[in-house]
Write a protein that binds this DNA or RNA. Structure first.
Lengths: 141, 141
DNA sequence: CTAACTGCAAACGTTTTGCAACTTT
DNA sequence: AAAGTTGCAAAACGTTTGCAGTTAG
């Protein structure tokens, strides 16, 4: 089953890596496929499992290295909502998240309409790295 | 606003625990002292270290159990900004945080003036548990 | 040749768990 | 005795690291 949006072809992924100056390797393509090939937020362990599910194999260390590389190059975004796992979000547009802790589920909130107002000035010697808004949910009875 | 804020006496702590239906034990008082006796965000390990610094001893398991108990009773708040550690915040008023990842430092932002607007409706079957705004900082230049 | 990349396994730090001992009633 | 609490040590979990081997330029 191939749909351009949910399963980008390798050329698109290659272009994406190239655009960030990332040397493409088979392993990195696998990781990129796992992240961009579905519309989900994946934890590092889930990426590792996903990459190794279809008969191929990429080591844990390489998955973690690759995810770190992708984050440092702005290809994906790290979302920290649960101490037990970091999620990697292929959506790098400004946006926020619903987090359903009961289900361990993270849902994007489009950033266009969301505004945070009334923030105080930043502490001395620091600059803004980003604003995460996490709307924590619980299941209603 | 009464001022014994930086070193509340045991009676205040006892009242605080009682108010949440928490049976006071010497260990729980120690943990409460560590959290409310200073104006800092502490990680579980820091609480453990703090409690064990002044000659007394509370086991790791008890510290973790106690922190979990305090969170579940709303006595302190869990702030998750770093996968490597959960911070415990004695300030349970609505507020947000600056997070300086380089320094591992968390700073409260008073919630009174901060507003988040433009959020979409919550997903079916869920209700709001809270909104965390995390302003991530990096050191300039 | 050199630099970059990968994989394995061991190490790491935080948190959780199993279980026996101790308190409190 | 029953319920609740504690401490120790071990385990579990996600993540990082050391290093040898491989690949690419």
């Amino acid at each position: 089953m191939e749909r351009a949006s949910s399963a980008p072809c390798d050329e698109q992924l290659l272009a994406r890596l190239a655009g960030r100056g990332i040397t493409p390797t088979p392993q990195r393509l696998e990781v990129a496929r796992a992240l961009f090939g579905r519309c989900e937020h994946l934890s590092a362990e889930e990426v590792h499992a996903s990459v190794n599910a279809d008969g191929r194999h990429v080591s844990r260390a390489t998955v973690y290295n690759t995810l770190g590389l992708f984050v440092s190059r702005g290809l994906v975004r790290e979302v920290i909502v649960d101490p037990a796992r970091v999620f990697y979000d292929p959506n790098t547009d400004p946006h926020h998240h619903f987090f359903d802790a009961d289900a361990g589920r993270l849902i994007d909130i489009d950033g266009d309409n969301v505004a945070v107002t009334g923030l105080p000035p930043l502490p001395e010697g620091t600059e803004l790295d980003g604003i995460d808004v996490i709307v924590r949910l619980r299941h209603s009875r």
